[in-house]
Simulated scan of single mutants.
Amino acid sequence: MATRNLTLDTFEGAVNGDGIVFVDFWAAWCGPCRAFAPTFERASEQHPDIVFGKVDTEAEQQLAASFRISSIPTLMVFRDGIPVYAQPGVLPPAQLDQLIQGARDLDMDDVRRQIAERGTQPAS
């Protein structure tokens, strides 16, 4: 599956379902974003069971602001509607592969228990 462009209108539907969603916050003027794009695209092709979405922070400023994106590229990972990772910076292919495996290996019952214990709600 190739990457999908996510907008304010499509973002919530993409990340709030079951499964794993990787979101790359980027901008066309950003050199590191352009450098990371082929790695992200290759991962989307190698893992068709995972949704890979891209948010253009210039076109979707409200969406970027709602997640307090202050540095790009920023990669976020959602699993079953719960944000489980958010970090700015470019990841080399091997690190992205590790992150993908880590998202697959998460014990979501444990994640939900930890959220309940902290009394926090997942970001949406």
Rank of each mutant, 00 (worst) to 15 (best):
Q87T: 01
G19T: 06
S124F: 14
V21M: 05
A123Y: 10
A43S: 13
F67G: 04
V51N: 00
V15G: 02
I20P: 12
S66W: 05
T57K: 00
A43Y: 04
A116Q: 08
E45T: 12
D24A: 01
L99T: 00
Q121S: 15
P38S: 05
R68Y: 08
Y85P: 04
I115S: 13
A86Q: 15
G81Y: 06
F11H: 02
R104V: 07
D24L: 03
V77M: 03
R4A: 14
P48K: 02
E58I: 12
P73T: 09
G102L: 04
R68V: 13
R104Q: 14
A65I: 02
F67D: 01
E60P: 06
P122C: 03
T120L: 14
V23R: 04
A35M: 15
G13K: 11
R112D: 03
T57S: 05
D105M: 08
Q62F: 03
R68F: 13
I100G: 00
D97K: 13
M108W: 11
R34C: 04
L91N: 10
G89Q: 13
D56E: 12
L106G: 08
M76S: 10
L99W: 01
R4I: 14
G13T: 03
P92G: 08
K54Q: 12
Q61T: 15
P32V: 09
A86C: 13
C33K: 04
A103N: 03
F67I: 09
D109N: 15
Q101P: 04
T120V: 15
T3I: 13
D9N: 13
F40I: 08
Q98D: 11
A28M: 06
A43N: 07
E117Q: 14
K54N: 10
A37N: 03
A27F: 08
S70V: 15
I69M: 07
D110V: 12
P38E: 09
A28L: 09
A27L: 08
R118E: 11
V51L: 15
F22I: 10
G53W: 02
P38D: 11
G13A: 07
I100E: 00
Q95V: 13
C30I: 09
D56A: 10
G53F: 01
F11D: 01
T120A: 12
Q87S: 10
F52A: 05
P93K: 05
T7M: 06
D110A: 14
P32F: 07
L99Q: 01
T39N: 00
T3V: 14
G19F: 02
P122N: 13
T74P: 00
D9A: 15
P122I: 03
D110K: 15
R104F: 10
E41F: 06
V21C: 12
I50A: 05
F52Y: 12
P88R: 07
P93F: 01
M1W: 08
Q114K: 15
D9P: 05
R113W: 04
V77P: 00
F40N: 04
Q46G: 09
E12H: 13
F78Q: 02
L91G: 06
A94E: 14
G81I: 07
D56V: 12
A103K: 02
E60D: 09
V55A: 10
S71F: 12
D24Y: 03
M1I: 10
P32A: 12
R118F: 09
A2M: 14
